[in-house]
Design a protein around this nucleic acid. Structure first.
Lengths: 333, 333
DNA sequence: CGTTGAAATGAAAGCGATTGCATGGATTCT
DNA sequence: AGAATCCATGCAATCGCTTTCATTTCAACG
């Protein structure tokens, strides 16, 4: 049986296709008895409107894309969920695209999206500002965790939370810190490093800058080795993934956390709670981040010429078990 | 500037829209000089075909959906990536849908997909067989990690790998085992439990069945407590997430792994490698799973009346650090 | 009972692409 | 040279829906 269309429904109901269409779009314009009949028949026939046909005439396809650099990075699934949930509530579906960490792929993929989706959310883009701007031309676009003049963005500002983390460590007695920085290409990494540097300078403590390291468990192992080679006692890791690698590396070398060294991560992914010891970290408001991104995007889709907006959501420091007091034993180390 | 269409391109090139269309679909039918000119103008105008218009006439929208029960479960991101990669190679995009662990949502969402996508891959569905069959009527559909007569499926069979895991533990000296079973609604959980039971019976060892527990870190903590309450020395956890919870619970109670108890997980998610001790587990061929699912789905889309196929891919036991020899100390415990 | 205005419905145009068929010009064959 | 063939291209129908505009229906009113 061929798929039901508004015509097959109209025929069965003895009305015109226009009326059937109205039942779904402007039901208040249709007499109740007719409306009910149409809905009943539609249900019987398993009618689902063709998104292609509707999209062709309305110019909207009811689809927004979310481009992530690496879906296997535990940071993103929560973002994906919140974006998808918000999108569904707004009556639009989500097209997910994994750029597999390639800046070139990002650009290529965004470019291909024009005409296929109503708008795109680009999370933590690696690509250059110029390329991004060019690729997003004529396509409503919202950046997550990156700002760019001329494009809307939603970012998580961890500055205050990193200050809190620093203060927390300072109160525990730490005076010598390590900054395990993230990839140079990462905009967020730059911001985080800057925040940590600012705090350290303001607080007047020593800060050894190590890295950059990759944002992965392995990158964290390397960072951990580098951290061990210094005589610092507390480290700011670029993110949780890296922090987990650091913890593993330290454990392997018989260095206890937080007994001998303290570590804070960033993002608060699932991993941060499951690792032993659980990770003190900066919790990103992932739910808000995703929701806000969709809201901004939808506004952008509805008013394509509106000024871009830049939303900033703060992260929050969450204390767990990977940070502890500086003991006498360490101080003498 | 309004978006470019085949008409605007045709006009600029002094040819008809049909020719422009052919340049993209059957380029060999168009004279080279014309083809080049059209392509150049199309590039200049940033032309992207309207997927809606194309979909309307071809009946294909170039989109397949992947429905997962919970994107935040670390099992899925790898599947998502492999599905998306394979789909992109086949020239189709991926619509991701998170059912947020609700069987009802699964059915509702699949139903809504008819007309919006060319086909759907449903991963680890929770919904009842009847509801699934009904929802997928008239929509090419492939199940992952679940079989159902009348629908195609791609599953990972862990039976042999679980036998290997058992043998491995047996050789290490273990004789008393615990089975920490997964949710009753999970088809995979049933299969895994059955495999473990079969192995234990065949091998003639004691098997304490505990649970069911939720497939989450917390569920694992509970499972860990239950495990500790027995005098068994090795546990089969339903999956890695649960196994990590078990390890955390044991660690908190001062029980060393694998010194005092051994544990194996299932799936081999990122977590399995980052947890301390790293987890001996059954590695699922996620890449193959995703790829095969897309291939089967595409075949199904191209030949909607073909018989459903059921593919089976084997898991492989991977030894890591969470399994170790039974020491005298434990035996006496 | 004819008029009027509102409410309900229908007719038809178009959205942007694909594609079967017709056409016209160049090439080849007889 | 005329017929047959072939290649490149254009014409026009079509996909399923939305939406404007026109038309019909009908209740209410004078």
């Amino acid at each position: 049986m061929a798929r039901a269309t508004i015509y097959s429904i109209a025929e069965r109901c003895g009305v015109s296709a226009a009326t059937v269409s109205r039942v779904f779009n402007r039901p208040e314009l249709v007499r109740e008895s007719v409306r009910e009949r149409v809905l009943r028949v539609a249900a019987e026939l398993d009618y689902q409107p063709s998104s292609a046909a509707r999209g062709l005439v309305t110019g909207r396809v009811g689809l927004v894309a979310l481009l992530v650099p690496d879906i296997t990075n535990p940071f993103f699934p929560l973002l994906v969920r919140s974006v998808q949930r918000t999108a569904e509530r707004a009556g639009t579906s989500l097209m997910l695209i994994d750029a597999e960490e390639s800046a070139a792929a990002e650009i290529r993929l965004v470019t291909k999206l024009r005409g296929r989706v109503d708008g795109v959310i680009v999370a933590s883009p690696r690509a250059s500002a110029a390329a991004l701007r060019e690729a997003a031309r004529g396509l409503p676009c919202v950046l997550v965790n990156r700002t760019l003049r001329e494009l809307s963005s939603v970012i998580c500002d961890n500055t205050a939370a990193l200050f809190d983390a620093g203060e927390h460590l300072y109160e525990l007695g730490h005076r010598d810190f390590a900054l395990l920085s993230g990839p140079n290409a990462s905009w967020a990494a730059g911001r985080r490093s800057k925040a940590v540097r600012r705090w350290a300078r303001g607080r007047g403590v020593r800060l050894a800058e190590l890295g950059p390291f990759r944002s992965s468990f392995k990158g964290g192992r390397q960072a951990g080795a580098a951290f061990l080679a210094t005589d610092t006692t507390a480290a700011f890791a670029f993110d949780d993934l890296m922090a987990c690698g650091v913890i593993a590396e330290l454990a392997e070398n018989g260095v206890s956390v937080p007994g001998e060294r303290s570590i804070v991560g960033c993002d608060d992914v699932l991993l941060a709670q499951t690792v032993t010891p659980s990770l003190s970290t900066v919790t990103a408001p992932l739910d808000d981040l995703g929701r806000t991104a969709v809201e901004v995007l939808i506004r952008q889709i509805e008013a394509p010429d509106a000024e871009p907006v830049a939303k900033v959501l703060p992260g929050v420091f969450t204390r767990r078990a990977s940070t502890g007091p500086l003991t006498g034993a360490q101080a003498s180390a």
